[in-house]
């Protein structure tokens, strides 16, 4: 970055990452088929600056828990805390990235990244632009700031979504299968990028996926979910140096271990999980 003003400097400075805690959280939905217990007394502790992955077949409550942490939804019982305080609604400290990019097609790339920044007090419009440019640069899209969303490839869209989520400088980044719709090669690039950005920007990241290998590649820790009712069944600590390569042999060992455990919990139901 070139010359920056003082407020801009403090804006771009690393925030202290946040500690997240879910205690005995339950959440059910009433559907046409009756009541679904999406989460059954689930407890999670996420350390400051930790990269945590939720993995499990679809329908086991991963998104539900993420939405509760995001504050988009409220639990039926139990509590969710961020740095010891109850989460009562969405907050700029916790940004979400969805599987569908959820970018706004009526805005260009710059406009999308600016959306959250405009809602953040304390910056003038020139500074907001600088901040947006910084994050577009970070995700490697500094040349596309004037592009329309539909002109971007799937991978580029998710990069913009990442820049948009990072721009308000949240302390926690919540990612719900952000790469699930991308091709393998694009995904591999993004694994490298997300690890680099995580180390540079010091965020707490919770990353949801149904891809075991992806979880093992990214997470410090991997939590294994099982459905009906949604529960956390096992925990794996991935002791590998970073940056990790998705194709490495050591990583394959972890993902086999996780997959084996998964099959045990969801015999006959684990089809949707890919190794």
């Amino acid at each position: 970055m070139k010359k920056v003003t003082v407020s801009l400097q403090s804006e771009l400075a690393n925030t202290s990452p946040e500690r997240i805690e879910a205690n005995n959280v339950s959440k059910s939905f009433t559907t046409d088929r009756g009541k679904v217990l999406a989460l059954d007394r689930v407890s999670v502790k996420v350390g400051e600056g930790e990269f945590l992955c939720f993995v499990g077949p679809s329908g086991c409550g991963k998104s539900t828990l993420l939405n509760l942490i995001a504050g988009i939804d409220q639990p039926d019982s139990g509590q969710i805390l961020a740095n010891g305080e109850n989460i009562t609604g969405p907050g700029r400290d916790r940004m979400v990235m969805f599987q569908e990019h959820a970018l706004f097609p009526w805005l260009d790339v710059m406009g999308n990244v600016l959306f959250g920044l405009r809602l953040k007090p304390g910056l003038n419009s020139k500074e907001r632009r600088e901040v947006a440019k910084y994050y577009l640069h970070l995700v490697g899209l500094e040349k596309s700031e004037r592009a329309n969303i539909h002109e971007l490839s799937g991978g580029m869209k998710q990069r913009v979504a990442l820049a948009r989520a990072l721009a308000p400088n949240p302390r926690v980044l919540l990612m719900d299968e952000p790469f699930a719709a991308l091709d393998a090669l694009t995904r591999e690039h993004l694994y490298g990028d997300i690890q680099r950005i995580w180390e540079a920007r010091r965020k707490t990241i919770i990353f949801v996926t149904h891809n075991v290998r992806e979880a093992a590649c990214l997470g410090d820790r991997v939590l294994l979910f099982s459905p009906n009712p949604g529960r956390i069944r096992a925990e794996f600590r991935i002791e590998l140096p970073r940056p990790r390569d998705i194709n490495s042999v050591e990583l394959a060992r972890y993902s086999t271990e996780i997959t084996t455990a998964l099959k045990g919990f969801t015999s006959g139901q684990g089809k949707e999980v890919s190794e």
Partner: peptide
């Protein structure tokens, strides 16, 4: 798509701002 509303909410948009900008 309802995802627009959820995305806007997580970025701190609500009420009139959401109506006008989303």
């Amino acid at each position: 798509p309802p995802i627009y509303l959820r995305a806007a909410r997580t970025m701190g948009s609500k009420g009139l701002h959401t109506w006008v900008n989303v």
